[in-house]
Design a protein around this nucleic acid. Sequence first.
DNA 1: TGCGCAGAAAATGTCAGACATTTAAATGTA
DNA 2: TACATTTAAATGTCTGACATTTTCTGCGCA
Lengths: 243, 243
Amino acid sequence: MKTDAKTTDLSAQIAKAIRDAIIEGRMIVDERLPSEAELASEFNVSRPTVREALKRLAAQSLIRTQRGAFGGAFVKRLSYEEAYGQHITTSTLLLSMNAVRFETACEARYALERACAPLAAQRRSPDHLATMRAEIHRQSQPGLSDESFCASDVTFHRALVDAADNPVLSYQLAGAVEAMQPLMNMITFTERSREQIVGLHTAIADAIEAQDAAAADVTLEELAAYTLTLGKDAMEKRARKST
Amino acid sequence: MKTDAKTTDLSAQIAKAIRDAIIEGRMIVDERLPSEAELASEFNVSRPTVREALKRLAAQSLIRTQRGAFGGAFVKRLSYEEAYGQHITTSTLLLSMNAVRFETACEARYALERACAPLAAQRRSPDHLATMRAEIHRQSQPGLSDESFCASDVTFHRALVDAADNPVLSYQLAGAVEAMQPLMNMITFTERSREQIVGLHTAIADAIEAQDAAAADVTLEELAAYTLTLGKDAMEKRARKST
DNA sequence: TGCGCAGAAAATGTCAGACATTTAAATGTA
DNA sequence: TACATTTAAATGTCTGACATTTTCTGCGCA
């Protein structure tokens, strides 16, 4: 039953075998793996090869290792924080390496955000509202760099998403929202466009506070359309400059 | 400037240094990394340590390696397929390891799917419609196992999402849809419930074909509600059994 | 009896060096 | 010129050793 795909590294094969065991539930959280020496003899390879396999799994946050007596490798409980981090890294790279069009990413992001809006309107906590208001205030400060403006924009939208109070939703959305930031950073925000955005953000916060899902949806749609035009302008300028 | 965090492995530090270089764009796709020996002397570590670092990066699909003369490690273009795979694995584990409530996962999934529906209605290709119809047909076959029914359900919904013709959206949704399957597999589908679901699926396919976004949305909402009741029943049964 | 400290043991972390294998370029020959 | 051969530069793998960390054990002492 062993898949003797001679084409792959031994360490990759071993990593796959262990990974499958974890995914299929044959090993449970906090269960200890055999020691490196035991794994080595079990798979008939040397200890460095086993170690390479374990490092692969560690990179995916599937195991953690602990030194010392009664240490070893343990199946790790994947935390939301780590999953967020991995997802954001992957999403960001996917966008930056595959020449994804601004329109495509933007459409995806706002489509997903609008899916959160009704839940956010229903469940928003004072905490999330406070964050949104604080970021709106920051975005109104003159002299803010474009990067900081974008970062604040991300924080605002994260708060909106988190207000839906569904960690699975937050996790899935994190990728879409954060991965957009590098693309957004290419936009130069004029005083006029910042005013527009702050106005729309305020309208969104108001709608969420008033638990008015319909209003939030309409405003988000407006914001999506406006962001799209800003992005298109920026992309055109870059295209002209490079020719 | 070297972060001498003595608390972490050398291989983790080296992996981080290279990963940052890739993420920040200091290394571009298909660029060759220094050889293992060169990296070893550059970071003042041994070759096995460098190799462990490289395996970490390979596990995240950030690099690929090539043997032979003029081989080495190269920055890898992250493909949608691989990103899908990683995302699904992570999402699945996140759900299974953190005792996410069925309701939470279900809510997230359908909220996101409903975000795709309007775009799918607008852009659906004959291909996607055909897939949806084919899966509906499969789901009507008597004698289908619960697992196969669930797998077909996932394929149907993937087709719905893909019909929106936005790869970024498909990528983000893949995690939500596929990661639900293990949870759905715990449900025993009676003949009656299958009929219900097939009916709703048919209504969704009809709405998408007719480019009627509103109808698709309403039906998806119904399906979400129905799935939720099925899930709750299944969870209650399991709870009773275990006491 | 109970407490604290030293040592043993077990595991991962790291290193050095060697050999095997793969691959493409360079070289030589018909 | 075309094809076969050699060669060199990489990664892949193994062996063995030592360093470090951490826990448990057992001893001595009050």
